[in-house]
């Protein structure tokens, strides 16, 4: 097998777009947790954002495909649940990209989502906090729907988890 360094593998994984939010990568979203190289095998640990996320299988297949294309013969994807995925793990770089995609990034909550249900979410288009929630549930499990009273546009928020 081609001799690959960790950096090459991480870089390749960082090129895999989130199927539902294609402007960010699986690495930036904190979905890829760990990479290990054992002899001729690469073991990637990944974790689901929301447990029922239907894009999860697609992400898993994309990881296998990407590493095979790099010349890795044996790719093993391990699913880990501990610690449970947190929206705090979304990289700073990805937060800006979410915003450009029309998705208000989730607030940092330091592990205490319970107390963190803010209604003053800033509009990703005009930054106004004069917004209201339209629906706590949205087109995917991880999104809520808002409306900006200032620029009169609907937008979505990536929910804190």
């Amino acid at each position: 097998m081609v001799k690959l360094a960790f950096d090459d593998i991480w870089r390749a994984l960082d090129e895999i777009a989130d199927p539902e939010i294609p402007v960010v990568s699986l690495v930036e979203m904190g979905i890829v947790r760990d990479v290990q190289i054992q002899n001729d095998a690469v073991i990637v640990s990944m974790t689901p954002t929301f447990a029922g996320c239907p894009a999860f299988e697609q992400m898993r297949a994309a990881i296998v495909e990407k590493l095979r294309a790099l010349g890795v013969e044996r790719v093993e994807v391990k699913i880990v649940l501990t610690p449970p995925w947190s929206s705090d793990w979304i990289a700073e770089s990805a937060r800006a990209k979410l915003k450009s995609f029309g998705l208000a990034p989730p607030p940092q909550h330091g592990g205490n989502v319970q107390l963190f249900f803010p209604d003053a979410v800033a509009c990703p288009y005009c930054n106004s906090t004069n917004t209201r929630v339209t629906n706590h549930f949205g087109p995917t499990l991880c999104r809520a729907i808002y409306f900006c009273r200032n620029c009169q546009q609907p937008f979505e928020q990536f929910k804190p988890l």
Binding site: A51, G52, P54, T134, N135, F137
Partner: peptide, 19 residues
């Protein structure tokens, strides 16, 4: 809105069942 909400509730519970 509730159509969307119930679809989300359904999918979440299926995800939990899967675990």
């Amino acid at each position: 809105e509730e159509d969307i909400a119930f679809a989300n509730l359904a999918l979440d519970e299926l995800g939990h069942a899967q675990l």
